[in-house]
Each structure stands twice: as C-alpha cells, then as structure tokens.
C-alpha cells in the first residue's frame, strides 16, 4: 500500500514537471485573435480605458451575473444555516 502511494506520488510529480516543461513562454498565447480584437476595439466600442472592466461588464456580462448570483446563493445559505443558532 505504501509502495503504491509513493509510486502514485512520483508519477504525478513527473506528470506535473512534464506539463511545466511544455508551457509556452510568458505573454505569447497560441491563439490571439480574440485578444487582439478586444485590445483594438474595446476603447472604441465600450468607451472604457480598462479593457478588463469592459470585458467583465460588457462583452462577458453574463458571467458577472452568474458570479453575483453565486455570491447571493452563498450568503443566503449561510444565513439559512445559522438561523436557529443560540445567541
């Protein structure tokens, strides 16, 4: 059993090291069509200097809505969990 654990640990470590060696250089993505479109057009279309904000609230606004809903669900579940706790 111990041997199996050590073998699994070693195999997984070498898998992670191999993945790290296969990383591409920093700042050079493989497919960059979408990034170039956002960088060139976000200031004209969304009129925002912060391209990240224009993506979060304009182009991909539905994701932000999901995030806000997740936070709301977490808060309501916590309030529900502690509703009967003694003061």
């Amino acid at each position: 059993m111990e041997l199996a654990k050590i073998a699994f640990f070693l195999i997984f470590t070498y898998f992670l090291l191999a993945c790290a060696l296969l990383l591409r250089p920093f700042g050079k993505p493989a497919v960059s069509d979408m990034d170039e479109y956002f960088i060139l057009n976000a200031q004209r279309e969304a009129a925002s200097n912060n391209v990240v904000a224009s993506i979060v609230f304009d182009y991909r606004g539905l994701d932000t809505l999901g995030e806000a809903t997740v936070l709301f669900a977490a808060v309501s579940s916590i309030v529900l969990l502690f509703r009967g706790a003694p003061k």
Binding site: A46, A47, S48, N49, N50, A53, S54, F57, D58, G61, T64, A68, L71, F72, A74, V75, I78, V79, F82
Partner: peptide
Amino acid sequence: TAGVIPLMNFFVGLEVSCALTIIVLT
C-alpha cells in the same frame, strides 16, 4: 466615460461588500 460600466461597478461593489459583511456578521 465608459457608459454603464461605472454604474454596474457601483452596484456590484455594494452587493459584494454587503454580502461579505453579512457572512462575517452572521
């Protein structure tokens, strides 16, 4: 500038601050 983005920032900021404060307070 930026249209509805500052307004959405304001609303999301209010929501997040109230939500996290409720968690700590509860």
